[in-house]
Nucleic acid binder design. Structure first.
Lengths: 211, 211
DNA sequence: GACTGTGAAGCCATTCACAGCT
DNA sequence: AGCTGTGAATGGCTTCACAGTC
């Protein structure tokens, strides 16, 4: 590998391409061109080829790409060739929704634990997971060697939840609380997913249209 | 206003700044500099000033910005000076989580209806909303002049849900189904929020680190 | 002295256009 | 002929650095 400077936008698209290839593979499609991928996901063919070119040469000139083969490469690139373990903290509606989210299991990401501080929820079964007490979180993450922590608690508890996860040696955090976490060591991968932002981009654009 | 070419990245940051200012305002902070905003949300001071400069001059040289004032301007820019009406389609865990999501109400976005096709859910109270039958969706959106439709149904029903919303004259759609909607007229604002992508960026980065 | 507002420079991502294979 | 892979060109976003203002 020659470079670490790959645009994040490319990774996002790679993830989308990969899911599209999964669909095609399930339909029995064997071969596909950059133009067809482009059409299917709504980008330009040159973009598809450039994104792939960051990682190697996967196609055959004059022919295209082998669907299964390309997807296997992309899964590997995305780090999905191993089974990552996830815990979700917060067993409210969002935490539950994420536990049931098919997109994770389909991609080899398994939710191994679900935690909450609310005693009414502790013990409840959510899918295959029994909701555990947040006091058990640190030990669980450490013993089970959990890789990823998903934060689905109210904003005011987000930072302290992150602290516990970091302390327990988690490798990555996905934060859904509507408040960007700032205080996380940069050895831990962090992404903030802000649901409100997405709505506000819509209201911004609607506002623009009316004038 | 001189230009329509404002980077989407700027809008995203604006939304984040605005929420940060809300917090400060609630704490009684009166004045703030671009450097302090930058620190609070994790970007550069020049970036903050440039983002604001797209829309006007809101500060005082040598002093900084008035918190209340700047936030009022930002809310207006983001289109949040009016009360948008939202319906959520899909009353599963994700739909419920979104209904309860404080980030919306705090920003003047009100969820006025919640719909599902599952008869077990219809009639159930979720916060202030009674779950309605999806058959009532089109008429409701039309009569109530709903602005935004949030799609929280399984992928396979996402496109048909979008079609009903479009037919009823919705202005914007926020899609949470893990499959990009492609077939929506471009008079309707559309955003796809893909939860799986966010996790895959984490696994990609973790994979990179190990080599 | 402190901090904003902004043209210009620098940097990064996307698109173009064509050489290289099959 | 058809499609990939890629250097070069373009376009867009971010950072710099400083003039302007309090």
């Amino acid at each position: 590998m020659k470079t670490y400077k790959i645009p994040e936008a490319s990774i996002i698209r790679l993830s989308v391409y990969s899911r599209y290839l999964n669909q095609l593979d399930n339909k029995g499609v064997l071969t596909i061109s950059s133009g067809e991928i482009a059409e299917g996901v709504g980008v330009s063919p040159a973009q598809v080829r450039k994104d792939l070119a960051y990682f190697g040469e996967f196609g055959t000139r004059g022919v295209g790409y082998n669907v299964k083969d390309l997807n296997r490469h992309m899964m590997k690139i995305l780090g999905l060739n191993k089974a990552w373990k996830i815990v979700i903290v917060g067993a409210g509606n969002l935490g539950k929704a994420l536990s049931f989210y098919k997109g994770f299991h389909e991609r080899g990401l398994s939710v191994v634990g679900l935690f909450d501080k609310n005693t009414d929820l502790i013990g409840e079964m959510v899918g295959n997971n029994r909701v555990m007490c947040i006091g058990e979180l640190e030990q669980f993450v450490r013993e089970e060697q959990v890789d990823i922590g998903v934060i689905a608690v109210p904003s005011k508890y987000a930072q302290e939840t992150a602290d516990v996860l970091v302390e327990a040696g988690i490798k990555a955090i996905l934060n859904f609380a509507p408040k960007a976490l700032v205080d996380v060591p940069n050895t831990v991968e962090l992404r903030n997913v802000d649901l409100a932002v997405n709505l506000e981009i819509l209201t911004f654009n609607m506002g623009m249209k009316e004038e």
